[in-house]
Amino acid sequence: MGEYGDQNTPKEVMLLLAKNTIDLRKEQGFTQKELSERSGVAYASVRKFETTGIISLESLLKICNALGRLEEFESLLLPDEMERMKKLFDY
């Protein structure tokens, strides 16, 4: 068991996101160059991301938008539903 217990480390999550992006890109028939052009993210950044998992948040969101997956980020980091309900009734 590592520093994060049973959870993946941030680096592991980064690499998993990169792998999933590669899979989606290939499913949609895009080369790295085409994904770069469609997303507006530099080709070198797309290559680096797919190899290392390292990318800026803005570039990641642009890539996800080009792959039709941007909406998946809308539910990320939302407060817990119970906490939101408490805040509604606790002025």
Rank of each mutant, 00 (worst) to 15 (best):
M1V: 09
M1R: 12
M1A: 12
G2Q: 10
G2E: 10
G2Y: 03
E3K: 11
E3S: 11
Y4K: 11
D6N: 13
Q7N: 14
Q7I: 00
N8G: 02
N8S: 10
T9A: 06
K11V: 10
E12L: 03
V13S: 01
V13Y: 12
M14K: 10
M14D: 13
M14Q: 14
M14W: 05
L15G: 01
L15H: 01
L16C: 00
L16N: 07
L17K: 07
L17T: 05
A18D: 06
A18H: 02
K19Q: 15
K19T: 14
K19Y: 08
T21N: 08
I22C: 02
I22G: 01
D23H: 09
D23V: 14
D23I: 14
L24M: 11
L24A: 12
R25E: 01
R25G: 03
K26C: 02
K26R: 04
E27I: 07
Q28R: 14
Q28L: 14
G29V: 04
G29T: 05
G29M: 08
G29R: 03
G29I: 06
F30I: 00
K33P: 04
K33D: 14
E34N: 07
E34W: 01
L35D: 04
L35N: 04
E37G: 03
E37S: 12
R38I: 07
R38C: 07
S39C: 07
S39D: 03
S39H: 02
S39T: 03
G40D: 07
G40H: 11
G40V: 08
V41E: 00
V41N: 01
V41A: 08
V41K: 01
A42M: 01
A44I: 03
A44N: 12
A44Q: 13
S45D: 13
V46C: 10
V46P: 05
V46R: 03
F49E: 02
T52K: 05
G53V: 08
G53M: 04
I54D: 15
I54M: 06
I55V: 13
S56K: 05
S56N: 01
L57G: 02
L57Q: 01
L57H: 01
E58H: 04
E58W: 00
E58I: 05
S59I: 00
S59F: 04
L60I: 08
L61I: 14
K62V: 00
I63G: 02
L67G: 13
L67W: 06
G68D: 09
G68F: 09
G68T: 10
G68Q: 07
G68W: 08
R69E: 15
R69G: 03
L70H: 05
L70S: 06
L70I: 12
E71R: 11
E71D: 15
E71Y: 12
E74M: 10
E74V: 07
S75G: 15
L76A: 15
L77D: 15
L77H: 09
L78Q: 15
L78K: 15
L78A: 09
P79M: 06
D80H: 14
D80C: 13
E81M: 08
E81L: 11
E81I: 11
M82R: 14
E83S: 13
E83I: 13
E83A: 09
M85H: 06
K86G: 00
K86S: 00
K86L: 13
K86F: 10
K87H: 06
K87D: 12
L88S: 07
F89K: 12
F89P: 00
F89M: 07
D90Q: 13
D90N: 10
D90W: 00
Y91A: 13
Y91R: 11
Y91I: 12
Y91P: 06
